[in-house]
Design a protein around this nucleic acid. Structure first.
Lengths: 250, 250
DNA sequence: AAAAAACGAGCGAGCGCTCTCTCAGAAAAT
DNA sequence: ATTTTCTGAGAGAGCGCTCGCTCGTTTTTT
């Protein structure tokens, strides 16, 4: 706890911390009794799952690879999980729970200032996804291809994030801080800007973009788009008319 | 050809048209001789591949499913492809080639006006990805998990799109049309706005957002962000300082 | 009848998962 | 303190099954 205060994010989002919560949530399907041991091995199993799945996909990752990478045997693995889909459920559930908790608890000094609140959401989402990068990448890439229950959870999570953004935008419009034509659509456009940081992490790393630089870039970009009243109206019909008039493809 | 003039996009990006080009590109690995027959069956095979892969992932899609869905037998399938990875190569190659051709050929009346050029890129990219939606979704979702050569092609494609956007932004800055601090980063932020339309197509469909509405929304959003000179500077240090100061995660 | 195309049973490899077995170390008995 | 018993964690061979892919045969086209 005292250590957690020093490096709050790094510790609260460490694989060990997250696996502690996973152990609680999946007590009944984990046959190992001793908590310290269970968390340590869960962390290795899930760490291996994230590493391998983000490289080659979850479906292509075999339990034998997982066993070797986590230093357990096939049988050992199955004292921690009762099926392969369970691994998916553990990871998606933890990402969804953490993201929801973090984003629905903005600090008090931010709640009444739409600009500051939006900046807080941007910075917090990006920093959280950085601290849990493999987890977020996994949730984003694999969510489409698995059981209905997990699929729905991913959709709900996306909707929740957007609702949080939309609420702040509406508040900003009401207080005169923002000028926005379509709040819902605008919220939808902000979301992928937050996701790009972890979805295309390799690109930004190669390019030398720092996380502070990225947060700043998104903040400025979004801020400028919402503050200027100039261009949003009037061009609508002209723009929608921009349709292909000739064969663009030989 | 005459029909193509009437509905240029629908036809130029039809599965048949794209498969005609695939047949040319992969002549040596397709054992069927008659072009009309080959294109027709290729279209059914690739159509089935896109449908099934976008539902459950390429790796999880079996050749038996593919055979049944395309109305061929296992053996019949193998007169059109010589391996499963080849299917991947066919699709990724066609998406890359088409996207490159379309985006590098802007109409003349647009080249000298940064605003109009950017609007053209936005509208064209979104409309193209709409006409080829399953293809783009496939390329986006599967690119990460396959052989180095294809992986690199996906990265190059991403880089190309960004370069095209960045060049227009630079031109706009030079002509005074835009006010931008970091052209490279800004181009990176516009890209995911174009991709969101096909990556999260289901969401927008459910919400009733039309393609014209989306193009308009992105155009307004980006336009406003680039035109306002107000907010981009000065807040940098303040924003980057927005760091977590306490445990946000219990 | 010759050639081209399609068929589908069958192959070996490798999958998720199970099951019996071992063994270190804690608990109980001496 | 020593011995015995018990137990839960882990090992790894093996099960049934499905995978990508092949190939001798049949059907269709020319």
């Amino acid at each position: 706890m005292k250590l957690a205060r020093r490096r709050p994010w790094t510790n609260a989002f460490s694989t060990e911390a997250l696996c502690t919560r996973i152990l609680e949530r999946h007590r009944d399907s984990i046959r190992v009794q001793k908590p310290r041991l269970a968390v340590a091995n869960l962390a290795r199993i899930i760490g291996a799952t994230l590493t391998l799945s983000n490289k080659q996909g979850f479906h292509a990752t075999t339990l034998r690879q997982l066993a070797e990478a986590s230093g357990l045997s096939m049988g050992g693995l199955y004292t921690y999980i009762d099926s392969k889909p369970r691994l998916l459920s553990m990871i998606l559930g933890e990402v969804a729970a953490t993201a929801t908790e973090v984003l629905t608890a903005p600090p008090d000094d931010v709640r009444n200032d739409a600009h500051k609140h939006l900046d807080w959401i941007i910075a917090t989402h990006i920093r959280m996804s950085e601290a849990m990068q493999p987890w977020f990448v996994f949730a984003f890439m694999e969510a489409k291809s698995f059981p209905p229950a997990e699929r729905q959870r991913a959709i709900d999570m996306e909707a929740m994030t957007e609702k949080i953004i939309a609420d702040v935008l509406r508040q900003g419009v009401a207080s005169g801080a923002f000028t926005i034509d379509h709040v819902g659509l605008t919220a939808s456009l902000i979301k992928p800007l937050l996701q790009d940081w972890y979805v295309k992490r390799a690109k930004y790393r190669k390019r030398g973009t720092s996380i502070d630089g990225y947060i700043d870039g998104v903040g400025s970009f979004v801020g400028a788009a919402l503050s200027s009243g100039g261009r949003a109206n009037g061009r609508t019909s002209g723009r929608a008319g921009l349709r292909p008039k000739q064969l663009a493809h030989p």
